[in-house]
């Protein structure tokens, strides 16, 4: 049988998918143990015990200065910024995408602008954002929005434009106005695509969040990682990175579920 025709079953897929992750963890444990055999004070590859001890201080015990459990305040601060940035971007991508995709006049007017903004590296704008918004929360949210919104708008607008013209004509022969075309034909069909766009934007959104937190913040997952870097505290950095990965995977999973449950027609449900 040809290699391209061998299809794993569900079980095999799960096992195969888990294997590299398990191997990675095992490799880490072996490497960490061997380094500590040479040098018990090694900081680069901390043992699981060291990580648990370090994290316990952040997760369970209140901070002496603030009285807060730092791990949780970091998590909530980051999720709030990320959530705000994603929510604002999603809403505007939907509105602007529908308008640009449906109305040729608007596309002619604003299409080039969106394309131009999309090619500017958002991090280059960060100093401007700090100057305009100050060092507070809004600059960080703004960086996420500026980072992901232009591409989301372009994606949604292109998708609306690519809806079959037959459908748009048909709707018009059924008496639909421009507003009804947007509301009843384009909007519902764009929803699964919008969720897809949010899923793809999650990665860049995290990058911009961590960057903003690293540069100017006093709480947040990115802030903590860059703070403890000074003391080479890998036993905190590594669990934080794992936690960020876990949060990102969970968000992606939730979005996929929403899309499949809410828009079964778009997933070829039979």
């Amino acid at each position: 049988m040809r290699l391209v025709n061998i299809r794993p079953t569900r079980r095999t897929t799960a096992l195969l998918g888990a294997a590299p992750l398990i191997l990675l963890v095992l490799a880490y444990l072996v490497a960490s143990a061997s380094r500590h055999a040479f040098n018990p004070a090694d900081k680069i590859l901390p043992t699981p015990g060291a990580m648990i001890a370090a994290m316990r201080a952040l997760v369970i015990e209140p901070d002496v200065m603030t009285g807060e459990r730092l791990f949780w305040s970091d998590t909530f601060a980051s999720l709030e910024r990320l959530g705000l940035g994603l929510a604002i971007s999603t809403l505007w991508a939907l509105i602007a995408g529908l308008i640009l995709g449906l109305i040729p006049l608007m596309r002619a007017t604003f299409g080039a602008l969106v394309t131009t903004v999309a090619v500017i590296p958002p991090i280059a704008l960060l100093p401007i954002l700090f100057i305009v918004f100050g060092l507070g929360e809004s600059a960080k949210v703004a960086l996420i929005v500026i980072g992901i919104l232009p591409l989301m708008i372009r994606d949604i607008a292109a998708y609306v434009e690519s809806l079959p013209p037959e459908q748009m004509i048909k709707a018009q022969t059924l008496g639909a106005s421009s507003w009804q075309l947007a509301l009843r034909v384009a909007l519902p069909q764009v929803m699964p695509r919008l969720i897809h766009a949010v899923r793809l934007s999650l990665g860049p959104a995290w990058v911009f969040l961590i960057s903003a937190e690293a540069i100017a913040s006093d709480v947040g997952l990115g802030y903590r990682i860059f703070l403890v870097r000074r003391y080479l505290s890998m036993e905190i950095i590594l669990p934080y990175v794992a936690w960020i990965a876990l949060l990102a995977i969970a968000m992606d999973w939730v979005l996929r579920q929403i899309s499949q449950r809410g828009f079964a027609w778009a997933h070829g449900a039979r």
Binding site: E166, S177, L183, R184, A266
Partner: peptide, 27 residues
């Protein structure tokens, strides 16, 4: 091809035209 709406079931595909005429704002 492509003259029905993929996001609506058969009934709502047919209902569409009636709704457009009767409900300009909400559709």
């Amino acid at each position: 091809r492509y003259s029905v709406f993929p996001h609506l079931d058969a009934r709502h595909n047919v209902l569409f035209g009636l709704e457009c005429a009767a409900a300009p704002l909400t559709g």
